[in-house]
Simulated scan of single mutants.
Amino acid sequence: MDFTGAYSPEHLSFLLQGFGVTLEVAFYSIVLSFIVGTVLGVVRYAKIPVLSQAVVLAVETVRNLPLLLIIFFTYFALPEIGFKLDKMFAAVLALVIFESAMISEIVRSGLKSVEKGQIEAARSSGLNNVQTLWHIVLPQALRRMVPPIVSQFISLLKDTSLAVVIALPELMNHAQIINGRNVNYVIPIFVCVAVMYFAVNYALSVLSRRLERRVS
Rank of each mutant, 00 (worst) to 15 (best):
F3Q: 07
F3T: 14
Y7W: 15
E10H: 07
S13H: 05
F14K: 09
L16C: 10
L16W: 14
F19N: 04
F27Y: 10
S29K: 06
I30G: 03
I30L: 09
V39N: 07
G41R: 06
V43N: 06
K47E: 15
K47V: 02
K47L: 01
V50L: 14
Q53G: 10
E60S: 09
V62E: 05
L65A: 12
P66R: 11
F73Q: 03
T74G: 08
F76E: 11
F76Q: 10
P79A: 13
P79H: 12
I81H: 08
K84H: 06
L85E: 03
D86C: 06
F98G: 06
I103D: 01
S104E: 02
S109P: 00
K112C: 04
V114S: 13
E120P: 07
E120H: 08
E120T: 13
E120M: 13
N128F: 05
V137A: 01
L138H: 01
L138I: 15
P139S: 13
L142Q: 12
L142D: 05
R143I: 06
V146R: 11
V146N: 01
P148E: 04
I149G: 01
V150F: 14
Q152Y: 03
S155K: 10
L156Y: 01
K158Y: 11
D159R: 07
A163D: 03
A163H: 04
P169A: 14
M172C: 01
H174C: 04
N179D: 06
N182E: 14
N182R: 13
N182F: 10
N184S: 15
V186F: 14
I187P: 02
P188Y: 10
I189L: 08
I189W: 07
C192T: 15
Y197H: 06
V200Y: 08
Y202V: 07
R209M: 12
R213K: 15
R213G: 02
